[in-house]
Nucleic acid binder design. Structure first.
Length: 650
RNA sequence: GCCGACGUAGCUCAGAGGUAGAGCGCUUCCUUGGUAAGGAAGAGGUCACGGGUUCAAAUCCCGUCGUUGGCUCCA
């Protein structure tokens, strides 16, 4: 090491002098031994490096530990290598695809040849990984020429790595070796495998090489690791908790919805309680929409083939959707509607429109049917028949921005009323590489994308931009929310559309007595009732806000003698639109309370001799406990106040 | 659509070639009770469906359907 000094700037702004060739690890050691024990990698001038990689000039350096996002990613990336090492030692001759870190853990795609890996073998692989981790092998980086790298993998017979190498430039290629395992890898890695203390391989799945379904399918093994056993246990508990919130499980337990093989896959049946919940949500939005100037409409579930030829749906999706329905005699063809917009366009066209009636906002809870690949169906979040809280706003070009902003407000109002705070607004734009997937002129698309971006900016939404996520007729602003298992779903959506008005030749007469083309905005604050309810169930773990609860109260008579009083009480509450049931089973009160608690019913009204004599109710709140006695009127007031508070936090 | 796993009572699950099991739920009876499970009895199954192997299949093999973890797709 030469004694030439370089200046290292640390995140706190302090600058230290070190000899050239100093490593992140050296610096950590210099700061404290504890830090050195925990340092996983170093961020050098905003690039993540191995902690042991020498730094050869002035630089800003941040030492990364488990607490850092990049530290975790490095840790998991190294864990993927460790898993690969274990796999190679257990199953010699297998070939490797890619093995990146992901949001929670890592995976590696492996070609096992003719062998099938069963999930039963995961513990064995884990054990092998633990042994290898104990060896504390360091991850050694070697820069290697492309020629040598190609030779290495040719000799090894790994065509996947060879394919990856094709795309790499000579001079930028590095190998990493730990123990007996060598991999093509840009790095960085943690100092040695000994940092990996807790290991869990989670599942095995198929994945196409390079994500292309034309390619061979590899076996993907998912795993997660931690520096401490305790962190793994906590993570597994979290997973367990998430499973408890799964809307498919709660939907069954709380009798909200069901599926039937006979009805067909992906076609949900809404049970009475689920329907009550759903209708409350609908009412809530209907009210808000009346206030916002929407006009409700109703249209049929099918539409003539020509409607969809006009709209462009037929050309775009006719082949991969439910096939047409034919009339027996005339041979007419109808399609199940995949969207409500064509019908709404026809409503717009029933008569000539004046600029004075714009914006025209047509709203419908419209049920649509889309053919989804069977492997893609998932509970209520991905189904083949669902109801969109749809509306189409027909407006003048100069009204687009303002209308768009109003729709953002409405969507935020809905999300806020249901306590969804953790969402991102995704600008879903056209894939510039793949324009033939979309209909409409460039100019029109650019304009719509610009308007959406501006509106989102004005509302200061937390946005991400995704190219290739647009609808085929226009760009979208999508509100993305996570479910219990961390999967991200699109709920609300707002879309500007210059194309359908063109295709349907929509017009209005302007102040200048000339014909003009309106612009359409498609929007759905919930997205669909099905997906929204699913995510809502997981969001509140089945403990719905009082105003939405399908069963708000359970009246629990202490014994049979008080059934009449309980029933009269219930009748009175029902008249106030407070719904639930009277538990007239021949059970003790403790049992009735337990069952009502498990059904997550917000309020229990316990009535016995004392209550009947004094015309009171003993109130018990779900998850809280006994609130004491009160008059029925006071209880009604309590409920009404709580509902008002829930709906008033906007 | 692709790769893997799974499908047994209403629900949650055990059983792995030889008479179909448990807990909860349900029905009836006893019990009439005060803030998270009172007691007893009973009903309930073509072990998803269709083929095959076998003296014998819920169990082993093949196919279909459905569910499920991913991948691809998604108006």
């Amino acid at each position: 090491m030469s004694n030439q000094q370089i200046a290292i700037t640390l995140p706190d702004g302090s600058v230290r002098q070190y000899p050239i060739g100093v490593t992140g690890m050296n610096i950590a050691m210099d700061i404290s031994e504890g830090l050195a024990r925990n340092v996983l990698a170093a961020k050098v001038n905003d690039e993540v490096w191995d902690a042991e990689r020498p730094i050869d000039g002035d630089a800003s350096v941040a030492l990364l530990t488990w607490k850092d996002r990049d530290g975790k990613a490095t840790f998991w990336h190294s864990s993927a290598h460790l898993m690969a090492e274990a796999l190679e030692s257990l199953y010699p001759g297998i070939k490797f695809g890619i093995g990146p870190p992901i949001e929670n853990g890592f995976y590696y795609d492996v070609d096992f040849g003719d062998m099938e890996l069963s999930a039963d073998e995961l513990p064995k692989i884990e054990e092998c990984m633990r042994q290898l981790a104990r060896e504390k092998n360091s991850f050694q980086r070697t820069d290697i020429s492309k020629k040598e790298a190609l030779k290495y993998f040719k000799d090894k017979g790994d065509e996947y790595k060879l394919e990856l190498l094709q795309d790499l430039e000579d001079g930028t290629i590095s190998f990493y070796q730990q123990g007996n395992f060598t991999d093509l890898c840009r790095g960085p890695h943690i100092p040695n495998t000994g940092f990996i203390k807790a290991i869990k391989l989670l599942n095995v799945a198929g994945a196409y090489w390079r994500g292309d379904e034309k390619n061979k399918q590899l076996t993907r093994i998912y795993g997660i690791t931690f520096p401490k056993q305790k962190e793994l246990s906590e993570y597994l508990e979290l997973l367990e908790e998430a499973r408890k919130r799964d809307h498919r499980k709660l939907g069954k337990e709380l009798e909200l919805f069901a599926f039937s093989e006979k009805v067909g896959m992906g076609l949900p049946l809404w049970l009475p309680k689920g329907t009550r919940l759903r209708e409350r949500l609908e009412q809530f939005l209907r009210k808000a929409q009346v206030k916002a100037g929407y006009d409700p409409v109703v249209t049929p579930h099918i539409g003539g083939k020509n409607l969809y030829i006009t709209s462009g749906h037929y050309e775009k999706y006719g082949e991969d959707s439910f096939q047409p329905i034919n009339t027996p005699n005339e041979g007419e063809e109808f399609l199940l509607k995949p969207m409500n917009c064509p019908h709404h366009c026809e409503i717009y066209k029933v008569r000539p429109r004046s600029y004075r009636e714009l914006p025209l906002r047509l709203a419908e809870f419209g049920t649509v049917y889309r053919y989804e690949q069977h492997g893609e169906l998932h509970g209520l979040t991905r189904v083949r028949g669902f109801t969109v809280d749809d509306a189409h706003i027909f407006c003048r070009a100069d009204q687009v921005k303002d209308e768009f902003l109003k729709v953002i407000d409405l969507t935020l109002f809905v999300l806020k009323a249901l306590n969804f705070e953790d969402f991102t607004a995704q600008l879903s734009f056209r894939d510039p590489e793949n324009k033939e997937k979309y209909i409409g002129e460039d100019e029109v698309w650019n304009r719509a994308e610009r308007e959406i971006t501006e509106a989102a900016g004005e509302k200061q939404l937390n946005t991400v931009t995704e190219y290739g996520e647009a609808a085929f007729y226009g760009p979208k602003l999508d509100f993305m929310v996570k479910d219990a298992l961390g999967r991200i779903w699109q709920l609300g959506t707002i879309q500007v559309d210059y194309n359908l008005p063109e295709r349907f030749e929509l017009e209005y007469v302007g102040a200048d007595n000339q014909k003009h083309r309106p612009v359409m905005i498609h929007r759905a604050p919930f997205g669909s009732m099905e997906r929204f309810v699913a995510v809502l169930i997981e969001h509140c773990a089945g403990n719905f806000p009082l105003w939405l609860s399908p069963e708000q109260i359970a009246v629990l008579p202490i014994s049979e003698k008080f059934h009449d009083y309980a029933q009269s009480l219930y009748t009175r509450l029902e008249a106030q639109d407070i719904t639930g049931f009277v538990d007239q089973r021949d059970e003790k009160i403790g049992r009735k309370i337990r069952d009502a608690e498990l059904k997550k019913i917000p309020f229990m009204l316990i009535v016995g001799e004392k209550e009947e004599q004094q015309q009171l109710v003993a109130v018990r709140k779900h998850g809280t406990g006994d609130l004491g006695q009160m008059s029925t009127d006071n209880f009604i007031q309590l409920v009404q106040q709580e509902i008002a508070a829930e709906l008033d936090n906007n």
